[in-house]
Design a binder for these strands. Structure first.
Lengths: 351, 351
DNA sequence: CTGTTAGCGCGTTCAA
DNA sequence: TTGAACGCGCTAACAG
């Protein structure tokens, strides 16, 4: 069955393509096409089951009505949630989303950016790996609509939506300190080049310093991405020997490793080891023990990003000055960060 | 900065568009373009930072090199994993993915299918809500490449990849029975019109029947999608009063509800209540207790679907007879389904 | 050998 | 209400 195109309708009705196009785009009245003719066009379109070719229209209009979304990994729940929200907002404005994962790979990210521009996406939302800023600046200079999320690239000219990582971990670690924990280790993935993670570490250091606690570099541990699980175990074993009383896992992945480690070694959380982490998970709310976490406002990030991009798209290349939004996180205290002093522990055993 | 198009290169080089197109598509040799000229074209293209317009090419070629993926919800980890794998495979073959969520809404799904065809996607992979088959049959008849995943629509002509739900839950419930559980309740979301879920229920019934256990309709409970959590609690309270000893949660969402319920009521799993579920989650492996689950081969499903679609695309509209693949699931026994008899329980208390 | 011309694909728009 | 041009890249046929 051959595809039905605009011209088929025109021919079978004995009118011009132009007329059909106008009618189908609801410009019939404006162009003084008689009601009767309009009706005939609509009927014929339905009869032939006409499906407009969006590509041809895009070519003519110079718009694809597509938005590109590039994230490190769409299988990551954080990004898939963001994708979903952006999708909804974009759809409402008539845009479709074309999504790809960069896998934290700079080469791949650049490739994707190029591919998406070839595809004439009207705008881009990207959670960049720490790629060369040059590409983004280039795009921006070409007047291409871009919004960065989650990972800041510190480019003033480009809109960015993220959370205040420093503030978030500062609060979380402070909570730990106020509870009574003193020897708080930091677990981070290595090499931690991402701005995000460095900021979180800064918050940790600031909290300790603020409370007059000496920062012990020996209990700040970097766990290589490769075979993270086994390495995490070794590091944690060492940390326990150093007598730490709590852990700040800089991301949820490491918190999960810590949880597994504790289970394996029969270490009670929080009695023997306090735990807080950055970036909440369902698991932390439901598991046992429940885990205190810094929660990111996923919805807000996604909404802000989508709306920002749509704004730019609406204003059409009018180069509005870019803005950087730092949304605030929310610390959710749960069981894992309750301080159980030696005394309290003994007391509860007696009861 | 104006966009650089093919013609700009041609003009600035004093050659024809045709020549430039050939060279840039690596057809230079084939068409006898001199090496020198080819070199000049490449250099100029780089110099001008030429970016081909994929849309124009697509229009001419009648291909968009895009694949549409429609799932109920991309924020659902099951589907986002599938999306990721399909993405990788599609990318390797030069395709990009355009993804949308149907929200289990028939209207929306039909709309998306239409939108995607307007966009001239070259093929479609869809985890269909139980929408009207008519649309799919229509597309298939038009020679449009489609692969269905996860949710079967029982259309012989259309390729489908999924798992054997009946078999999967049959095994799982059997395990429960062999362990010693006898009063096994079924928890399902309602209204459960999805073929998937009905098959899982069938497996449950088959397992009981097979073991000569009477099927008690009163402990088969349907929990309305709306305010699922509160309703789940009520239902579970009733079930406990009826003296059940285990629960088969037909999907992981309900297993999570059960877990929360148990925690709230201080019910020990598995000592006081066994639990198994369909569709594994990280949470089930890490949480406490760990939860026995029927695990779906996500990778295989996604790979099979992507490859199947690419095959069809390669063969180009040659209407190969469709196939239905039913992959098998894997039951992963964990703590939640260990049977602790009255005696064993008492014994352990004494120790 | 080395290249060019002309027109297509499909929907939109403007002058007539 | 319409013919013709246009947007951009591709390709069959053709010419020196």
């Amino acid at each position: 069955m051959k595809k039905v195109v605009l011209n088929d309708i025109a021919v079978s009705l004995g009118v011009s393509k132009a007329l059909v196009s106008m009618v189908l785009n609801h410009q019939g009245d404006k162009n003084g096409i008689s009601k009767a003719t309009q009706e005939r066009v609509w009927l014929k379109a339905k009869e032939l089951n006409y499906i407009p070719n969006h590509i041809a229209r895009g070519l003519r209009l110079g718009k694809s009505m597509m938005i590109g979304l590039i994230v490190p990994d769409i299988a990551n729940i954080f990004f898939s949630r963001i994708a979903r929200i952006i999708e909804d907002i974009a759809n409402k404005a008539g845009y479709n989303l074309i999504i790809s994962s960069s896998d934290e790979n700079i080469e791949r990210e650049l490739q994707l950016i190029r591919k998406f521009t070839e595809r004439q996406v009207d705008g881009l939302i990207v959670a960049s790996t720490q790629s060369t800023k040059a590409e983004f600046v280039q795009l921006k200079n070409d007047g291409f609509p871009i919004v960065l999320i989650d990972r800041s690239l510190n480019i003033n000219d480009i809109d960015y939506i993220g959370v205040d990582n420093t503030e978030g971990s500062f609060h979380a670690v402070n909570h730990l300190i106020k509870e009574g924990f003193r020897k708080i280790a930091l677990l981070k993935p290595g090499p931690a080049h991402l701005r995000n993670l460095r900021d979180r570490e800064a918050g940790y250091r600031k909290a300790l310093k603020n409370s007059g606690i000496r920062i012990n570099e020996r209990i700040i541990r970097e766990i290589p991405f490769t075979n993270l699980d086994t390495k995490a175990e070794d590091e944690l074993d060492e940390l326990m020997k150093l007598g730490i009383d709590a852990i700040f896992a800089i991301n949820n992945r490491l918190a999960v490793s810590t949880l597994q480690f504790a289970r394996k070694r029969n270490i009670n959380i929080p009695e023997q080891l306090g735990l807080i982490t950055f970036d909440d998970l369902d698991l932390f709310e439901i598991g046992h023990p429940t885990v205190s976490a810094v929660s990111q406002p996923v919805n807000q990030i996604a909404e802000a990003a989508a709306n920002k991009l749509l704004d730019i798209l609406r204003l059409d290349r009018s180069v509005k000055s870019a803005q950087h939004f730092l949304l605030s996180t929310k610390f959710i205290p749960r069981e894992s960060s309750v301080y159980v002093s030696q005394n309290a522990e003994m007391l509860s055993e007696v009861l």
